[in-house]
Amino acid sequence: MVQTHHFHLDAKGHSVTVNIDGGHRGAVELLVDGKETGRAEIQGGRPLILSGELPTDPPLPVSVRITPGPGTPRCIAVIDGAETVMSPRAF
């Protein structure tokens, strides 16, 4: 059975979401306000970093460190130098 995980964070009035598809060719995507801003294939349990921008004035960089496994994935967002653990989200 393929397991999909979703993580979410509201930051500075914007939505930051990470979707992790743990299938055979697993992938991770970063969405800002529902638009894909980053995507990568999962390479075993190796951590990944995806980057994007919050559409503020001026735009604010956001990066998310993703640890896909083993076990339950974990996501930490870094926005304006502050680290925040992203909450799992049920769909």
Rank of each mutant, 00 (worst) to 15 (best):
G34R: 09
R25I: 10
F7A: 05
G13W: 09
K35C: 09
R89T: 11
S51I: 01
R39T: 08
S15F: 02
H24F: 15
T56A: 09
E41Y: 14
C75H: 05
G69T: 07
P59H: 01
P58C: 04
I76P: 02
I66D: 00
P70S: 04
A40T: 12
E83W: 02
T4N: 15
A27N: 13
P47L: 05
Q43H: 13
V18G: 07
G38F: 03
G69M: 09
H8E: 11
S51W: 12
E41F: 15
A27D: 13
A82Y: 06
A90I: 08
A27M: 14
Q3H: 13
P68H: 06
I20L: 15
H24L: 15
T17R: 11
H5W: 15
E53S: 14
C75M: 09
P73F: 08
E53V: 11
I76S: 02
E41D: 12
E36F: 10
T67F: 07
M86C: 00
I66T: 02
G81P: 03
R89N: 12
R65G: 01
F91N: 07
G38R: 02
T56N: 06
A90E: 13
I42S: 08
G69E: 02
I20T: 05
H8F: 11
V62K: 01
V16H: 03
G38Q: 07
Q43G: 10
P73T: 07
V62Q: 07
M86Y: 04
G22I: 06
I76K: 06
L30F: 08
G23K: 12
S87N: 12
T37F: 05
P88M: 10
G34T: 02
P47R: 11
Q3S: 14
I76Q: 05
G34K: 07
D80R: 01
E29R: 13
T67M: 08
L9I: 05
G22Q: 09
P47V: 10
V64E: 06
H5R: 14
V18T: 09
G23Q: 11
G26F: 11
P88S: 02
L50R: 00
V18H: 00
D80A: 12
E41R: 15
H14Y: 08
A77G: 00
V2C: 06
G52P: 03
G38K: 03
V85E: 12
L54R: 03
Q43M: 12
D33H: 08
I20K: 09
F91S: 11
V32Q: 10
V18W: 00
P88T: 04
T17Q: 15
I66S: 01
G34C: 03
F7W: 09
I66Y: 00
L54V: 02
I49A: 07
A90Q: 14
V28D: 01
G71P: 04
R74G: 07
V16T: 01
G69W: 04
T37N: 13
G22M: 10
P68N: 01
G22L: 09
E83M: 07
G44C: 04
P88E: 06
P47C: 12
L60I: 13
A77W: 00
E29G: 04
T17F: 13
P68V: 08
L31A: 05
S15G: 04
R25D: 15
T72A: 14
S87C: 05
P58Q: 11
R65A: 13
D10N: 11
T72I: 10
P70V: 02
D10H: 07
E83P: 01
H6C: 10
G81D: 07
S63N: 11
L30V: 02
L30P: 07
R25S: 15
G52Q: 03
R74L: 06
R46T: 10
D21R: 09
H14V: 01
